[in-house]
Design a protein around this nucleic acid. Structure first.
Lengths: 219, 219, 219, 219
DNA sequence: AATGAATGAGGCTTCATTCAT
DNA sequence: GATGAATGAAGCCTCATTCAT
C-alpha cells in the first residue's frame, strides 16, 4: 500500500514537472516570436496545449512564468559555458571561449537568444551567474599578469554591452559569427593583449567552439 | 480685416505648437519612468494636463507620438554632440568627447537618457545619426594611423554596446562618471592606443566636457 | 474518469449554448427597441446580465452578433411560414396565408417584428428564404392560370414593399390586422383575381391564421 | 446711412443663406454616400469647406441639420411632383405620373434618392406632403368611379411601400425603369383598372415623364 | 489536477459639442 | 459671424485572473 502511494505520488510529481516544462517551452517559443510584452496567457496555453486554468496551477502570475523562464535560461546557459571553459589554462582563452560559446548557443538555438535579449530589456531581475563567472576569470587574468589591471566593472560592462549588441545583430542576421571574432579581438586588446595575440586567441576560440560544442537545445 | 485673420491664424498656430510641445515633454517624463510599452495615452494626457481627445488632435496613435519623440531626441542629441566635437583635431579625442558628452547630457537630463535607453529596446526605427558620426571619426582615425585598422562594424558595436550598458548603470546610480572614464580608456586601447595615452585622453575629454558643456534641457 | 470528462465537456457545452442564447435574446430586445445602429455592446450585456468580456467570448464583434441574430430570425420565420402554407392547394390562398401568418407572428412577438424591420434597413446580407418561397408560389399560380402572368420581380417587390410598410404601421399601432386584410385583397387583385374573390380569400386566410396559429415565441 | 445699414443687413442675410445652403448640399452628398448614421460633423464641414464652429452657427445639433435636409427634400420633391401632375384630367394617369416622376428624379439625382431612402429609415418625422397628395388623387379617382372603393390607408401603403422598395432596387442598379412600369401597372390593377388599361397608362406616364421632365438638380 | 466560462479593469479611439479668440 | 483647439462622454476591444465544476 505504502509503496503504491509513494509510487503514485512520484508519478504525479513527474507529471507536474512535465506540464511545467511544457509551459516553459511554449513560453520560450512565444516570447522569442513576440517578445515578453506582446505575449499573452492565451498564447502560452495555446502553444502548450493546456487550458488557461492549468497555467495558473503552475504560475500564479505571468510575471512568475517570466521569472522562472529567466532563471531557467540563466542556469542552463551558465552550465554550458562552465563546461566549455572548464580546464582551460589561459584566462584570455577562457574569456574568448566564453563569448564564442555564447554565440554558438545563440546561433543554434535562436529562441533562447531572443528571449535572453528581450527579457533583459525588461525590469526582470538580472541573474548574476555570468557576471560572477566573468569576474573570476578576469581577476585571475590580472593576477597572472595576463591582462593589464583595470576596474572590473568597466571591463565587464565593455564585454557584456558589446556582446549584447552583437547578439541582436547576429540574431537579426545583420552580422555573422566573424563579426564576433572581430569583437573578441578588440575586447582582448582592450584588456591588454597585443593585437596579434588577441586575434590569434579569438580565432582559436571560435574554432574550438565550432568543433567541440556538441550542442543540443536544452529544453 | 485681413490683418485680423492673419494674426488669428498665427495665434492658433502658436497654440498648437505649444500644446504639441507640452505633450512631447509629458511623454518624455512618462516614458522615462515607465518605458514606452507601459505608457498609456491616459498617462500622457494626465502628465500634459490636457484631455484625452486633445492627444488625438496631435498624434493619430501612440506610436506616432513615440516616433516624433524619438526623432526629436535623436536630432537634438546629435546636434549637441556635433557642437562638442567640432574643431577637434585628434580623432581619438573626438571619440572620447563623443562618449563623455553623451554621458554628461544623460547625467544632467536623465529623462532623455532613460527614454533613449527604453526606446532603443523597442522596434522603433533607430536613427542613424550617431552611427554615421562615429563611422566618420573612426575612419578618419584609421586613415591618419591613429587607430589600428579594424572592421568598422565591430568597432562601432563595441563602443555603442558598452556605452549603452554603462548608460543603464549610470542612470540607475550603480555607476558614476568615473566608470565612463575607465570605459573610454578601454575602448581607446581596443582601437590601438597605448594604455597610457588612452587613459590620458579619456581623462582630458571628461574634464573638458565637465567644464565646457553648458548644458540645459532641450525641451 | 472518461465518463467524468465527457460529462464535464457536455456540461460546459450546455452552459455555452445557454449563454449564447441569452445574448441573442437580449440582443433581440435591445434591437427591437433601439435599432441595430444605436445598440451598443453595453446594452447587450446589460440586457443579458453578463459582463462585457463575456460578450466577446461569443461574438468577435457586434456585427457577428447581428448576423447570427439575422440568420436565426430568418430561419425560424421561414420555418413557421412553411408550416402554415404546407398542403395548401390554391396558390392564391398560399400567398394570402404567407402574409397573414407573417403579421400574426409579428403581432404576437413584436420584438421579432421590429428587429426584422430594422435589420432590413441596414446593409446586413438579406436572407433569400422568403423571396424564394414567394417566387415558388407565384410561379405556380401563374402556371395554373390563377394569376395573370407578370414579371416576378415586380410582383415580389409589390408584396414585400407593401408588407414591410404595413408592418411598420401595425407595430406602431397605427394600423390593425384589418389593414392587412385590405392590403392582401389589393395585392391579390393586382395579381389578377377578381375583387370579390380576392377579398374572400384574404378574409379566409386571416381567419385561418388567427385560429390555427398556435404561436409561441421562438427564443 | 439707413440705406447703407439695410443694404448691409440684406447682404449679410444673403451670405447666411448661402452658407446654410452649402452645408445642406454638403450634407446631401455625404449622407448619400455614407448614410446618416455614419456621417460625422467632420464630414459635413469638410465637404462644405467651412469650420466646425460655423456648422454650429447654423444648426444647433446634427439632428437639426438632418431635419432641415429632410424638410428641404420633401418640399422640393413635392413641388416637382405637383408641377408634373398639374392639369391632368385622369386621376389614374395622375397617380402613374406621380410614381414615374419620382423615379425620374431619383434616377437623375441619385443623391436625393439615397438620402430620402436613408433618412426614411430613421426616426425622423416623416413629411406628409406626398401622402396628402396621394390621398387627394385617390379620393378623386374613387369619387369619379375610376378606382374601385378601398380603404385609403391600405391603398396608400401598397403604393408607398412598393415604391420605396423599388427605389432601393433602382438606386442599386438591380432594377431599371421598366421595373417601375411593371410596378405601376400592378398597382393600378389593384386599384381596379383593367390589366390592359393599367399597362397602357403606366407606359404613357413613363414616356411623358421621360420627355417632359426637364429635370435639373434643385440644390 | 485540469478545465474553460465568466469577469471587469484598463486601454484605445471617435466625435458631438463648447468656447475663447 | 467664423474659427479651430479643447473637451469628455461613450463606444470598442483585450486580457490577466478567478472560480465552479
Amino acid at each position: 500500500m505504502r509503496v503504491n502511494l509513494e509510487a503514485r505520488a512520484a508519478n504525479a510529481e513527474q507529471r507536474r514537472a512535465r506540464t511545467r516544462l511544457r509551459l516553459l517551452e511554449a513560453a520560450l517559443a512565444v516570447i522569442a516570436e513576440k517578445g515578453p510584452d506582446q505575449a499573452s496567457v492565451e498564447d502560452f496555453v495555446a502553444a502548450a496545449g493546456v487550458s488557461r486554468g492549468t497555467f495558473y496551477n503552475y504560475f500564479p502570475t505571468v510575471e512568475d512564468l517570466l521569472e522562472a523562464l529567466n532563471s531557467h535560461l540563466a542556469e542552463t546557459f551558465d552550465t554550458e559555458i562552465g563546461r566549455i571553459t572548464e580546464g582551460v589554462r589561459d584566462p584570455a582563452l577562457g574569456l574568448a571561449l566564453l563569448v564564442h560559446a555564447a554565440f554558438q548557443i545563440v546561433t543554434h538555438d535562436p529562441m533562447r537568444g531572443w528571449v535572453a535579449l528581450r527579457i533583459f530589456g525588461t525590469s526582470a531581475p538580472r541573474h548574476q551567474l555570468l557576471a560572477t563567472r566573468f569576474d573570476a576569470i578576469f581577476g585571475w587574468a590580472v593576477e597572472r599578469g595576463r591582462f593589464r589591471p583595470a576596474v572590473a566593472d568597466a571591463a565587464r560592462n565593455l564585454l557584456f554591452g558589446a556582446v549584447r549588441m552583437a547578439q541582436a545583430e547576429v540574431l537579426s542576421k545583420r552580422a555573422d559569427l566573424d563579426h564576433v571574432t572581430d569583437l573578441v579581438r578588440l575586447i582582448l586588446t582592450a584588456y591588454g593583449l597585443e593585437a596579434q595575440e588577441a586575434a590569434e586567441i579569438s580565432r582559436q576560440a571560435q574554432e574550438r567552439c565550432r568543433n567541440e560544442l556538441h550542442y543540443s537545445p536544452v529544453m
